[in-house]
Computed example of a mutant assay.
Amino acid sequence: MVKRVDEAFGRLLDALTSLGLRDNTVVAYTSDHGCHFKTRNGEYKRSAHDASIRVPLVLSVPGRTGPAPRRLVSLIDLPPTLLDAAGLPVPAQMQGRSILAEAGEPDDDDHDDDVFVQISESQVGRALRTRRWTYAVVARDADGWDDPGASEYGEDLLYDLDADPHELTNLAGRPEYADVAADLRRRLIARMVAAGEPAPVISPVTVDR
């Protein structure tokens, strides 16, 4: 799949070059979601797992070269990035930030490097994906089709992506990870409020050992 996308994107750029349009055309390829093929829940997507939330993003901007930014990038960053690439001002009220100014900057292990995820239809869920952790909560009494959000959530998933990149061991509720969960809970609530949602109550989960 990656090979075919790379080939097709190259063919598109070749066509723009042959038409004399390459130097004034911005091209972006992405997707709205990934797919885990019912290996994580009863449908194909809509979970906080990497197979669902990680999507391709290929960007060609005339006059821009160099490596991509090393921070985590969200689809919410795409509109301001495209406006920036077109030389247009980015409205102050627009969420997200252009990634163009960060291209080629050195790697940054900033603690606050994270992406906020909202999940609907299969559940009313929220998640935070950092470089190391995936932390997800779900409103079990809410309807994913009818309810845009909830006032109460319960912890659902916690994965250590350094030790468990395939997300096979759910650490949510384990007492030895209580401090990690508390920090991610605080950060997730802050991201929800920044997105315009009321601050919810998130209940920790406990597991029997």
Score class of each variant (00 low, 15 high):
Val2Thr: 15
Arg4Ser: 14
Arg4His: 13
Val5Gly: 11
Ala8Ser: 14
Gly10Asn: 13
Arg11Asp: 07
Leu12Ala: 08
Asp14His: 03
Asp14Ile: 01
Ala15Arg: 09
Ala15Tyr: 02
Leu16Lys: 00
Thr17Met: 07
Ser18Asn: 02
Gly20Ala: 01
Arg22Leu: 15
Asn24Ile: 07
Thr25Leu: 03
Thr25Asp: 02
Val26Cys: 02
Val26Gly: 02
Val27Arg: 01
Val27Lys: 04
Ala28Val: 09
Ala28Phe: 04
Ala28Ser: 08
Thr30Val: 11
Gly34Ala: 06
Phe37Val: 11
Arg40Asp: 01
Arg40Gly: 03
Gly42Lys: 14
Glu43Lys: 10
Arg46Ile: 11
Ser47Val: 14
Ala51Met: 14
Pro56Phe: 09
Leu57Asp: 03
Val58Pro: 01
Ser60Val: 09
Val61Ala: 11
Pro62Ser: 14
Pro62Met: 15
Pro67His: 12
Leu72Glu: 07
Leu78Phe: 12
Pro80Gly: 03
Leu82Asn: 04
Asp84Pro: 12
Asp84Tyr: 07
Ala85Pro: 04
Gly87Asn: 14
Leu88Pro: 05
Pro89Cys: 10
Pro89Tyr: 10
Val90Asp: 01
Ala92Ser: 14
Gln93Ile: 12
Gly96Met: 01
Arg97Met: 14
Ile99Met: 06
Ile99Val: 13
Leu100Ala: 02
Ala103Leu: 11
Ala103Cys: 15
Ala103Ser: 15
Pro106Ser: 00
Pro106Arg: 03
Asp107Gln: 11
Val115Leu: 02
Val115Asp: 07
Gln118Lys: 12
Glu121Gly: 05
Gln123Lys: 06
Gln123His: 07
Val124Cys: 08
Gly125Met: 03
Arg126Glu: 05
Leu128Ala: 00
Arg129Gly: 00
Arg132Lys: 03
Ala136Gln: 01
Ala136His: 02
Val137Met: 00
Arg140Phe: 09
Arg140Ala: 01
Asp141Ala: 11
Ala142Glu: 00
Ala142Ile: 05
Ala142Arg: 01
Asp146Leu: 15
Gly149Ala: 13
Ala150Lys: 01
Ser151Asp: 15
Tyr153Glu: 02
Pro165Ile: 10
Leu168Ser: 12
Ala172Gln: 08
Gly173Trp: 07
Pro175Trp: 06
Glu176Thr: 05
Tyr177Cys: 08
Asp179Asn: 12
Asp179Leu: 14
Asp183Ser: 15
Asp183Thr: 08
Leu184Pro: 00
Arg185Glu: 07
Arg186Pro: 06
Met192Gln: 05
Pro200Met: 07
Thr206Asn: 07
Arg209Gly: 09
